[in-house]
């Protein structure tokens, strides 16, 4: 059983929107310390890792570990009705087994919706050694991806201690985007060794656009021909990160 209350409904909405880019039917682990979710998208190309600790909530009552599966687009439809001053409370109704969403503002409304069969799939944390770590603003990353998407479906990301370069090659046109150490767009860059890997722009853009409302700062970590991790710094106590598998380069 659980019941939690959050006055920052905007954050709650935006983080659920960010998760819905990867999964629509989301199975949350709800425990005494907070709520967690780790899930892959249907084609198993991308993964989301989310955590919101109990201190992020105004009130948090959880007796023991449980799992609940919710259709996120249905839940978001309801949450859209919450105004910015509304306090949102979610809970599981013991008798009906339904998920309850209460919004308290100038008046009170309570919605109920069904829970779905929980996914028993436990996604382990992938063990990957990242050789590059780049931090930049989310809006700069969004712009970079928009530039690359003009010419291609894929982008190759290369980085060393001095700069990060993104290369997109299309049938007709190409693009090269350089972000150098010391420029305003680059907050920090670390590289154990120069690395490069190629990723699908549709996945990358979808992830970054979905997460952009939750975060101003993003850290990218990758290694040559390995998955990329995008860690979006959250305003609450918790985390939101994604892992995206690379594309094999063929020329």
């Amino acid at each position: 059983m659980f019941r939690m209350k959050i006055s920052d409904s905007k954050t709650f909405k935006s983080v659920l929107t960010a998760i819905s880019a990867i999964v629509d039917e989301a199975t949350f682990n709800i425990g005494p310390d907070g709520i967690k979710l780790r899930a892959m998208d249907p084609s198993r190309v991308a993964m989301v890792d989310f955590e919101m600790r109990r201190t992020s909530f105004d009130e948090y009552e959880v007796e023991d570990e449980s799992k609940v599966c919710i259709n996120l687009s249905e839940l978001l439809k309801l949450l859209k009705r919450a105004g910015k001053d509304d306090v949102v409370e979610v809970s599981l109704d013991k008798e009906s087994g339904r998920f309850m969403v209460t919004m308290r503002g100038r008046y009170t409304r309570t919605f109920n919706m069904p829970t779905l069969e929980v996914s028993e799939e436990e996604v382990p944390e992938p063990r990957i050694t990242f050789n590059v770590r780049v931090t930049l603003t989310t809006s700069d990353l969004q712009d970079v991806l928009k530039d690359a998407a003009l010419v291609s479906d894929n982008v190759r990301i290369e980085a060393n201690e001095e700069d990060m370069v993104m290369v997109a090659k299309g049938d007709i046109a190409g693009a090269k985007i350089e972000i150098k150490k010391g420029s305003d767009a680059l907050i920090s860059i670390e590289a154990k060794e120069p690395s490069k890997a190629t990723f699908s722009l549709s996945y990358l853009s979808e992830i970054v656009n979905a997460a952009s409302d939750t975060s101003d700062i993003v850290t990218l970590e990758f290694s040559t021909d390995m998955p990329i991790r995008l860690d979006f710094r959250q305003r609450y106590d918790g985390k939101l990160s994604y892992l995206l598998a690379p594309r094999i380069e063929v020329e």
Binding site: R44, V45, I128, R247, I248
Partner: peptide
């Protein structure tokens, strides 16, 4: 073909889960 390219060139996360 977007699907064939994806099947041939896009790796899956599952490869890294062990």
């Amino acid at each position: 073909s977007a699907l064939l390219k994806d099947a041939l060139y896009q790796e899956r996360i599952t490869k890294y889960l062990h």
